[in-house]
Design a protein around this nucleic acid. Structure first.
Lengths: 148, 148
DNA sequence: TAAACTAATTATAACGATTATAAAATAGTA
DNA sequence: TACTATTTTATAATCGTTATAATTAGTTTA
């Protein structure tokens, strides 16, 4: 399953004429295997055993390469580091405001809103970003315990 | 109209025990009058005639104060500077990927999606963020001209 | 397979937005 | 008017990210 994602991803790169280096292979492998939403620095730290000489710039460069190739998405959160998300199927994110955990969830097409906005503003709409914020079950439970 | 927003905003601050300084007054006035989505630096530059000695830190500090008081919202765009939006009624933003222009538009309640996500993930949902991206009419026209 | 060409990596320094700090100034109140 | 906590200012620091230039290494072609 995750093997498939990896070979597909490598194929996409090859198609686009992008070289497959060991570092790129490892970064992709990491993102697919853990399916988390890591920062560039987390990836860098996770791979420093395997690549003691790898530069942070390499991580950033390659994340941009992957992003341009459509393999991953970048999630911005103001001052904090960007997080990167391997693209599988369309999904949205819900983030815990207490612990920062990010959970995926699916929701059927919001194409409707893109169409509506296009009508009203005259924009040609390419994409949208939707995120929810709240408190995750674990943090809810923790709060419950404190207050009781 | 914008007068009303200003006095309301000042009132909110007073209620919260936050002092009204000339700088705060001017920043609020600027945001309400132009109803744009300025960066901290744009505000800083716009007010440097009135306050030649004002520090950038003052702008940042007060934007945070206003944000905590619920008067404004912060819009993050990765590496680029945050933009700040005076809160009036609920609306969403659509951004031009070519020139960076941000336009407001309204769309009736997406409470449905908050409810749905809550069911699926077990989160308590507090808020959401939705943004659209595309090309504005002016940039569309410019492209048309070039290609014809 | 080896040479050649080009792209990628590394190490480092730079950048830019934002924040921390400490001293000076000031708003709000008694 | 005087007091006191808050705010402003000026400056330096921080941190994520990117630019640069030299070195290394994929890939292609002979």
């Amino acid at each position: 399953m995750s093997e498939l994602h990896l070979t597909e991803a490598l194929d996409t790169l090859k198609q686009a004429g992008i070289r497959i280096t060991p570092q790129r292979h490892a970064i992709l492998e990491y993102m697919i295997q853990f399916m988390s939403h890591p920062t560039a620095d987390e990836i860098y730290k996770a791979l420093e055993d395997k690549f003691p000489n790898m530069s942070v710039a390499t991580v950033y460069n390659n994340l941009r390469v992957f992003k341009d190739a459509g393999l991953i998405k970048e999630l911005n959160y103001g001052d904090a580091s960007s997080r990167f998300d391997f693209v599988t199927h369309d999904h949205y994110h819900i983030m815990c405001e207490d612990c920062g955990k990010i959970v995926d969830f699916q929701y059927p097409g919001l194409d409707e809103i893109e169409h509506c906005a296009s009508q009203v503003t005259g924009f040609q709409v390419n994409s949208h970003r939707l995120e929810l914020y709240g408190t995750c079950p674990a943090c809810l439970a923790a709060k419950q315990k404190v207050s009781s």
